[in-house]
Lab assay of single mutants.
Amino acid sequence: MPVRRGHVAPQNTFLDTIIRKFEGQSRKFIIANARVENCAVIYCNDGFCELCGYSRAEVMQRPCTCDFLHGPRTQRRAAAQIAQALLGAEERKVEIAFYRKDGSCFLCLVDVVPVKNEDGAVIMFILNFEVVMEKDMVGSPAHDTNHRGPPTSWLAPGRAKTFRLKLPALLALTARESSVRSGGAGGAGAPGAVVVDVDLTPAAPSSESLALDEVTAMDNHVAGLGPAEERRALVGPGSPPRSAPGQLPSPRAHSLNPDASGSSCSLARTRSRESCASVRRASSADDIEAMRAGVLPPPPRHASTGAMHPLRSGLLNSTSDSDLVRYRTISKIPQITLNFVDLKGDPFLASPTSDREIIAPKIKERTHNVTEKVTQVLSLGADVLPEYKLQAPRIHRWTILHYSPFKAVWDWLILLLVIYTAVFTPYSAAFLLKETEEGPPATECGYACQPLAVVDLIVDIMFIVDILINFRTTYVNANEEVVSHPGRIAVHYFKGWFLIDMVAAIPFDLLI
């Protein structure tokens, strides 16, 4: 008679799926529990143990900040960024110097990925580790590398530091407007667009060049630039800015003055950032001319202004700041037409079709709590990747769950009947059967004279019903998954307890 339990259901295979997918890609990662103190490590794979030199037993239950890997060259700011990422709910990448158990130093890129439950609360953290440099290539500990984003994938490793954006290309926007319009339909740009040429040739750093990471940081200074100062900065030398009595002219307006920039070969870094931020506020060169004239017309309804409409929906549905990093990277690809469009465009503009998908598509409701890094690593669709929660398995109709209350009560009843059979069957065979043979035949009273025979008949009927119930009862397979398919249940029961239950259900007393 089957006594099969499996009270692990309803099970959740999400954690096993993450481990299996990460292991298949030869990654070095740990999984931490966000619900406990210090976000203790609950799993670390073999790749991480080989990377740091510690065994799994030495890593388990330690804080996922990996303070046991810190050393003299470990930056405090990087460690603080990892700790801050564990307090938030967004994906974050941090470069930090770690030390192995043998004392060797290596520069590592740590990717902190939160995993949320159905309520939107962070319950786990996945920390992925990628070695960037070994100890002989690690720089000085005073050099802070965590304020910069990861290198873009479309640049060669040897040319990542030679990417320079020439400031004269930004200063000569109005001069290039006529050349853009003359391109017409034969050019790649839309009317009114501004073409910015980027020099990728390796050259020595000069005062006129600005690194790509500095251009990325310009967006942080746009908020500090007032509207009046932006307007004066875009007017140009024809209309000098008016300053109040006793007030000095704005240095932001002076930063885009061609006369002032041409007199000296070098520009201050602050002026460069502010000038680029001011130019980015204009949607095209037409807006710059309109600002000089004193009238700013409404933005025209053409394809170039609607190019950012799908980007707005993608940004609203993005799951991490990696989408913004990807957008900034692609927006700086050289030799393309940049349409400086305000994100607050007309909502009635139709979304044009684009061959290049900048932001990841909208994630469906079932995966809105899973970050983009987890979705990318697992390579699963929205119909396959579940949320991290207890999910009731989908069972067929008329199927009994093996952990249901009805099955528990039924098993206790069958257990009592088995005990009765084990006690009274030998007793009936030894004593009652002998008395029946010696006594007179009682054929007239039937079952009324033999109450134990009636009980034995009921017990046999219950055993037959138990066999039928076992054909529709779920079970737990070797992978700790609840199986509810009727065919698989029948095959599993035939290979197991079916023969024993059938022999126990045969009414031998009635056959004798």
Results as ranks from 00 to 15, higher is better:
residue 238 G to Q: 07
residue 366 R to T: 14
residue 208 E to I: 05
residue 190 A to D: 15
residue 84 Q to A: 13
residue 134 E to W: 05
residue 275 S to I: 14
residue 67 D to C: 05
residue 190 A to Y: 11
residue 227 P to L: 05
residue 100 R to G: 01
residue 357 E to N: 15
residue 117 N to G: 15
residue 332 K to D: 14
residue 304 S to M: 15
residue 74 T to D: 01
residue 60 M to E: 03
residue 381 G to E: 08
residue 177 E to A: 08
residue 85 A to K: 01
residue 348 F to S: 07
residue 70 H to C: 14
residue 267 L to P: 07
residue 212 L to M: 05
residue 107 L to F: 14
residue 280 R to D: 07
residue 373 K to N: 01
residue 276 C to K: 07
residue 150 P to K: 13
residue 279 V to F: 13
residue 163 F to D: 09
residue 62 R to L: 10
residue 11 Q to Y: 12
residue 285 A to Y: 13
residue 165 L to K: 06
residue 328 R to T: 12
residue 113 V to D: 11
residue 110 V to K: 01
residue 129 F to D: 01
residue 207 S to M: 11
residue 19 I to H: 01
residue 118 E to D: 11
residue 202 P to I: 01
residue 126 I to C: 09
residue 29 F to L: 01
residue 342 D to Y: 02
residue 77 R to T: 13
residue 207 S to G: 12
residue 79 A to D: 01
residue 156 A to D: 07
residue 264 S to C: 11
residue 156 A to N: 03
residue 164 R to N: 11
residue 59 V to E: 01
residue 210 L to C: 05
residue 360 A to P: 15
residue 295 V to A: 14
residue 365 E to Q: 13
residue 265 C to E: 07
residue 90 E to A: 14
residue 86 L to Y: 01
residue 179 S to Y: 05
residue 134 E to N: 13
residue 150 P to T: 13
residue 306 G to M: 06
residue 2 P to Y: 15
residue 23 E to Y: 01
residue 264 S to N: 04
residue 195 V to H: 04
residue 179 S to A: 13
residue 284 S to H: 08
residue 248 L to W: 15
residue 307 A to M: 12
residue 348 F to Y: 11
residue 194 V to F: 12
residue 164 R to P: 14
residue 278 S to P: 14
residue 265 C to S: 14
residue 189 G to V: 05
residue 272 S to E: 14
residue 53 G to F: 01
residue 268 A to E: 07
residue 145 T to M: 05
residue 217 A to S: 08
residue 326 R to N: 09
residue 251 P to A: 10
residue 70 H to N: 03
residue 9 A to P: 06
residue 307 A to G: 12
residue 337 T to Y: 05
residue 100 R to D: 01
residue 166 K to R: 12
residue 111 D to E: 01
residue 193 A to H: 01
residue 41 V to N: 01
residue 43 Y to G: 01
residue 288 I to P: 07
residue 22 F to P: 02
residue 284 S to E: 15
residue 352 P to K: 03
residue 150 P to L: 08
residue 40 A to Q: 10
residue 312 R to A: 13
residue 376 Q to A: 11
residue 103 G to Q: 07
residue 345 G to M: 14
residue 283 S to E: 15
residue 385 L to C: 04
residue 43 Y to P: 01
residue 379 S to K: 05
residue 358 I to Q: 08
residue 58 E to L: 02
residue 62 R to F: 04
residue 138 V to L: 14
residue 2 P to Q: 06
residue 194 V to H: 05
residue 370 V to L: 08
residue 290 A to E: 15
residue 280 R to Q: 14
residue 385 L to D: 04
residue 262 G to F: 04
residue 125 F to P: 01
residue 140 S to W: 14
residue 321 D to M: 15
residue 170 L to W: 10
residue 321 D to R: 14
residue 314 G to V: 07
residue 336 I to H: 14
residue 18 I to R: 01
residue 123 I to S: 13
residue 384 V to E: 04
residue 11 Q to M: 15
residue 204 A to M: 04
residue 244 A to K: 14
residue 151 P to F: 15
residue 93 K to L: 14
residue 241 P to L: 12
residue 12 N to Q: 15
residue 378 L to K: 04
residue 94 V to G: 01
residue 112 V to I: 15
residue 201 T to W: 04
residue 374 V to Q: 01
residue 213 D to T: 14
residue 42 I to M: 07
residue 211 A to M: 15
residue 166 K to V: 01
residue 32 A to P: 01
residue 219 D to Y: 06
residue 264 S to E: 11
residue 371 T to M: 07
residue 262 G to N: 15
residue 87 L to F: 15
residue 112 V to Q: 01
residue 51 L to Y: 01
residue 131 V to Q: 15
residue 323 D to H: 14
residue 249 P to D: 04
residue 277 A to V: 12
residue 297 P to H: 15
residue 176 R to L: 06
residue 57 A to G: 14
residue 363 I to A: 09
residue 299 P to M: 08
residue 198 V to P: 01
residue 66 C to I: 08
residue 218 M to V: 07
residue 153 S to M: 04
residue 37 E to D: 08
residue 263 S to L: 09
residue 33 N to K: 04
residue 370 V to E: 03
residue 39 C to S: 12
residue 200 L to A: 15
residue 324 L to A: 14
residue 81 Q to S: 14
residue 131 V to Y: 06
residue 199 D to S: 01
residue 195 V to S: 05
residue 253 A to S: 11
residue 85 A to I: 01
residue 67 D to V: 07
residue 110 V to C: 11
residue 158 G to E: 05
residue 206 S to K: 14
residue 93 K to N: 13
residue 242 R to V: 10
residue 294 G to V: 09
residue 97 A to N: 06
residue 146 N to F: 15
residue 356 R to C: 12
residue 195 V to R: 06
residue 290 A to G: 07
residue 362 K to D: 14
residue 21 K to L: 06
residue 219 D to T: 05
residue 48 F to G: 01
residue 110 V to Y: 01
residue 119 D to G: 06
residue 69 L to I: 01
residue 195 V to I: 11
residue 69 L to D: 01
residue 253 A to M: 15
residue 221 H to T: 10
residue 280 R to G: 10
residue 226 G to D: 05
residue 183 G to P: 09
residue 225 L to C: 09
residue 290 A to Q: 04
residue 134 E to L: 06
residue 88 G to S: 14
residue 287 D to A: 05
residue 145 T to H: 06
residue 321 D to A: 14
residue 330 I to H: 08
residue 33 N to P: 01
residue 99 Y to T: 02
residue 357 E to D: 10
residue 144 D to H: 15
residue 68 F to E: 01
residue 339 N to E: 07
residue 209 S to I: 13
